[in-house]
């Protein structure tokens, strides 16, 4: 619900033609922080195509994959903030990853707009017979060894927090990306795992089951399931897809680019919007301007707090 209101709000603020002053001097390079062929890549490339169609700017997508967008971001921050080099990654890249990195800081970037949000959930194989985290807890207490598939430090910390909240002990398996976590689940190398959105076909097919939502609200695929907060674990692992630029980008450029994206995502005919509705339901999430900047910085602080638990 919130996201839809967001779209409306941003439209009212940014879509007015008065801002359409800025024009790029030559092609815009959109650096996609993930490998070619994945969901992020498809979203980025469709968006590039639609920006080109809407404004007539030449937008060239380039893949700079690695480490959840941080490899791309490390290169992006030293580019000129002239709106002609943009990055496409997820908010985690900016509000968690800098903690473990010498060459990234949240202040290194201009945050232009989010496009879509994750569907973070705790998953298990359907044949495990578990329906909720309580079932998992019972199985663990019954002596079953729990192996949790994670693709990064943040979600591994999250898994550990959930385990502590449930009072059980789990072994963590680090996988290659979100898809790797699903593979580990399906091939029985792990029995619990995170899914950020790629789990959709497998959940719909009845191979995997959602135990709980790790978003602030329930996930679209299984709205009946509680959030982690409902069961007493104060954790939000949701993330959004985000377009960024190097720090110090002039306001008018940021607003112009943000308004183009908002306009595209508000159009029900838009290919990007349709892709998002299918892949990251229910609708695009468009947060821009100061609100977005505040969100990134405050989540970063919250994440630092979260990780302090592990320092002892």
């Amino acid at each position: 619900m919130k996201s839809i209101i967001m779209v409306g709000a941003s439209l009212a603020i940014f879509a007015s033609p008065a801002f359409a002053e800025w024009k790029p001097d030559g092609p815009i390079r959109l650096w996609i922080g993930y490998g070619a062929g994945g969901g992020t890549d498809v979203q980025g490339r469709t968006l590039a195509k639609e920006i080109e169609a809407l404004r007539g700017w030449k937008v060239i997508p380039e893949n700079k994959a690695g480490d959840d967008g941080t490899v791309m971001s490390a290169q992006l921050k030293s580019e000129a903030p002239d709106g002609q080099t943009l990055g496409f990654a997820i908010t985690t890249t900016y509000d968690f990853a800098p903690m473990n990195s010498d060459n990234l800081a949240p202040e290194d970037f201009t945050y232009i707009t989010t496009t879509a949000g994750s569907q973070m959930a705790v998953l298990a194989r359907a044949d495990s017979g578990w329906n909720t985290l309580e079932d998992l807890q019972a199985a663990a207490n019954g002596g079953e060894q729990i192996v949790w598939a994670n693709w990064g430090t943040q979600v591994e910390a999250g898994a550990e927090l959930v385990a502590r909240g449930l009072g059980i002990s789990v072994n963590h398996l680090r996988t290659e990306g979100g898809k790797g976590a699903l593979n580990a689940l399906v091939s029985m190398d792990a029995n619990v795992g995170w899914g950020g959105g790629v789990q959709k076909p497998l959940v719909e097919a009845g191979v995997l089951k959602i135990l709980a939502s790790a978003e602030t609200g329930p996930v679209a695929l299984d709205p009946e399931k509680p959030t982690l907060k409902d069961i007493g674990v104060d954790l939000n692992l949701g993330y959004q897809y985000i377009i960024t630029a190097p720090a110090g980008m002039p306001e008018e450029i940021r607003e112009e680019i943000a308004s183009v994206v908002a306009e595209i995502l508000a159009n029900p005919e838009s290919e990007t919007r349709q892709f998002i509705e299918k892949q990251y339901p229910p609708a695009p999430i468009v947060t821009q301007g100061e609100a977005l900047r505040t969100q990134i910085l405050s989540t970063y602080d919250a994440n630092i707090e979260m990780m302090k638990v592990f320092d002892k």
Binding site: G35, K64, A65, G66, D67, T70, A74, Q75, N100, D102
Partner: peptide, 21 residues
Amino acid sequence: GSTMSGNGPRLTFGLPELGNG
């Protein structure tokens, strides 16, 4: 350029471009 434990890419000579291997 690969990493397994989330400590940033290794053996890159400090070049961010090598971060994805």
